[in-house]
Design a binder for these strands. Structure first.
Lengths: 213, 213
DNA sequence: CGGTGGAATCTGGTATACGATAAGGCTCAT
DNA sequence: ATGAGCCTTATCGTATACCAGATTCCACCG
């Protein structure tokens, strides 16, 4: 594995991020720093670093001397995020498949297996594994692109969790994942790009349907 | 004005970012936290928060227990950044012009005036003002898009400063800015988009020419 | 019943201490 | 000389304690 040793800041960041994503910290909620720090058993330094990063991720807003607040979800932001994904992700995945090494292929395959395994479980955390898979397809493409895609993926995840997780819409998505990975490993950029567009549009249309309800 | 009170973290972030952008902290240099903290007269907490954000911005890399290092410039990353800008910025600016309010128009006009004023000075900091202007054109478009564009703009700025700042290529760019702003204020999305594509391509081709030298 | 003047509460920040780790130098045996 | 292994040192990451200033809340007063 690449890096096993991660700083406490990193771990705190991921824990708090997960809390926000799964809704354990509701939108609009003020973030009480000492409470959370106590809960996690860390001091304010790593916590504040984590919160700062989450603000940049668009999950928190900060107001000077009043601290951080979990940002609201909105249909506007949802469209914004998915519009951005549509503009960036297909090209990014396509580009990445051209640069991917065997190591990258293995990593992506592993990510998809993990996702499929998770889907088999009754209430596995498939959303996280879904994100991991999609990001594995982008990683070889370049550092900046990857960072951007990671952020968009995380933002999208909030909406997916809220609106789509309850439904079992994983059948078709799962099949699409396999197709994408096959084309990706083959290095068929054009095919990968088309499939990815389609895949995102699928999620988006499911989402729109839910939102209009 | 929107926010006058900014935290020390924010100020530190901007100071350090500027140092990196203008090359006062060279790529590859390790960031000595206590040295910089002492120089800026701040303690480690705001400094570390700033460094964390700069890492997310793609200006620093961090290595556990070894701290932060200023990231290298590379032609690969330059193309990556400009490719991303080309994919996002024209659409973002066009979208924003449709949503812009009179207040936004005033802000953009003000940003351009400031840039032009800066250009008149013998060695003004036109690059920063250039960024401010371009960002003013994106701001009304949406929070996430704005954050993304801000990051790309900052990353691009490094390359522009290194390779283009010495040259006086500002004549044409300046004229283009006026044209863009006019169309933008008019709300002519299609025109704005085309002009922006062209403007970015102009910078990019100048950059490529320099890089190939 | 509305305004007002504290308290109480938090945040943002400082100073300081300390264990852990990485990097470089030194010793020593070969 | 040279390479292995140990030791020193610098620095990071984190914790703790503390403080000033801003915000919020509430009880009191007109």
């Amino acid at each position: 594995m690449n890096i096993v040793v991660r700083t406490l800041s990193d771990q705190t960041y991921e824990i708090v991020r997960r809390r926000i994503l799964v809704g354990a910290m509701q939108p609009g909620t003020a973030v009480r720093q000492d409470v959370i720090a106590a809960e996690l058993g860390v001091s304010k330094i790593p916590l504040r670093e984590a919160l700062g990063r989450l603000e940049q991720d668009g999950l928190l807003s900060s107001y000077p001397n009043r601290g951080y607040v979990v940002r609201d979800l909105s249909t506007d932001e949802a469209s914004e995020v998915f519009a951005l994904r549509l503009k960036l992700e297909p090209g990014a995945v396509a580009e990445a498949c051209l640069r991917a090494t065997p190591t990258d292929h293995a990593a992506a395959e592993k990510a998809l297996s993990a996702l499929e395994a998770e889907l088999a479980k009754p209430d596995g955390d498939h959303v996280s594994f879904n994100r991991a898979f999609h990001l594995a397809l982008v990683r070889p493409g370049g550092h900046i692109t990857f960072q951007l895609m990671e952020r968009l993926q995380i933002l999208a995840e909030r909406y997916v969790r809220v609106h789509l997780e309850p439904l079992g819409r994983d059948e078709r998505a799962s099949q699409e994942h396999r197709e994408i990975l096959t084309a990706w490993t083959r290095g068929d950029a054009a095919e990968v790009e088309a499939l990815t567009v389609n895949h995102i549009l699928g999620t988006l249309s499911d989402l729109k349907q839910q939102l209009s309800t």
